[in-house]
Write a protein that binds this DNA or RNA. Structure first.
Lengths: 191, 191
DNA sequence: GTCTATAAATTGATAGAC
DNA sequence: GTCTATCAATTTATAGAC
């Protein structure tokens, strides 16, 4: 049996509202009413509206870093590893497109301190992709002239899904992730 | 000699503020002060804050559609045409990253009527890319199993630049556009 | 921990003088 | 076409009762 605390209900409500209207477009009243509480109840569990955003953003960044890090450890073959990394990273963005929008598009709304903390997670995500490409080049399996630029492009394929992906639409997350993974291999494989 | 009207000064101010803080995070007072006017002067030239957004968004969408359409007409060779399309589309997003952020991320803030009008331009952009891929497949030069999905992925490479591109940073728009164009060719060329 | 009530500031937009 | 002044509504956040 899973107990959902008031704090978690507020976080779920914040995810809904931030993803739909953006951070600035969301009122604390909207979050409260989605969570079935009065406006004042929000502040018992979260100091400010921004601290709610930070909680969501931090958890989302950590989750996506976990996903790509785990994928990076699945195979010793650089091509299959890259395929898995792009597949899992893309699938995460499709399956979590609401959190993904907050992660990717509300970064600027964080306080400078919170932004700095999250920026380190972003660098880890990029570094994980760069390392996978560099290893594949070292092993002579991948052909990548610009490793950091290509890493950004591969991540963009997954990240940009959150801009338009609609759950229940004609394309499934699995289909899109499979396509992105195949394109990633074609982009980088040595011929 | 170029005369800058008050209306244009307001649009430039709106681009700055919308790109920096988002539509909801921007106040009409902020736009007015950036344009060197009083808050009331805004409403002489634009009915609502949203009409300013619509003006910026419409112009931006038209411009990027013009860019990719012109690129689609440059060459009869599908590979070189695709390279030019991805290069020009990516370069536009790097060179116009502020307008690009408004175009890509403030779509939801438009009124339903304005959103519908702009949606037709978005479909034209996608269709232009799809046609270029389909023609290359017909001519036996490109190998693309999922044309609409691959079109979205190619556009994503350009679009996602606006999320992080910083003018004057270590990477130039030209460098990024060249890389994206090369990756696009590798993704789609028949081997 | 939840509520009602409200403070204090900010917001989009307008009125009316010049 | 620009201004000062202001309205009416909304906003984040708090006070204090239960």
């Amino acid at each position: 049996m899973t107990t959902i605390t008031a704090r978690e209900r507020l976080i779920n409500a914040a995810v809904e509202s931030f993803a739909e209207k953006g951070f600035s477009g969301t009122t604390t009243r909207d979050i409260a009413s989605r969570a079935g509480m009065s406006p004042a109840a929000v502040y018992v569990h979260h100091d400010t509206k921004e601290s709610l955003l930070f909680t969501v953003s931090l958890e989302g960044h950590r989750h996506s870093l976990d996903v790509i890090s785990a994928a990076a450890a699945t195979s010793a073959d650089p091509v299959e590893r890259l395929r898995t990394m792009v597949y899992d990273f893309s699938l995460w963005h499709a399956d979590n497109s609401r959190v993904g929008r907050i992660v990717q598009y509300e970064f600027h709304a964080l306080t400078p301190e919170h932004r700095a903390e999250i920026a380190t997670l972003r660098r880890s995500i990029e570094k994980t992709m760069q390392n996978a490409l560099a290893d594949g080049v070292d092993k002579g399996v991948l052909d990548v002239a610009d490793i950091s630029g290509t890493a950004l492009a591969l991540l963009s394929l997954g990240v940009d899904l959150v801009r338009w992906f609609v759950p229940g639409g004609s394309r499934t997350g699995h289909d899109l992730a499979t396509l992105n993974a195949e394109l990633a291999v074609r982009m980088t494989r040595r011929t």
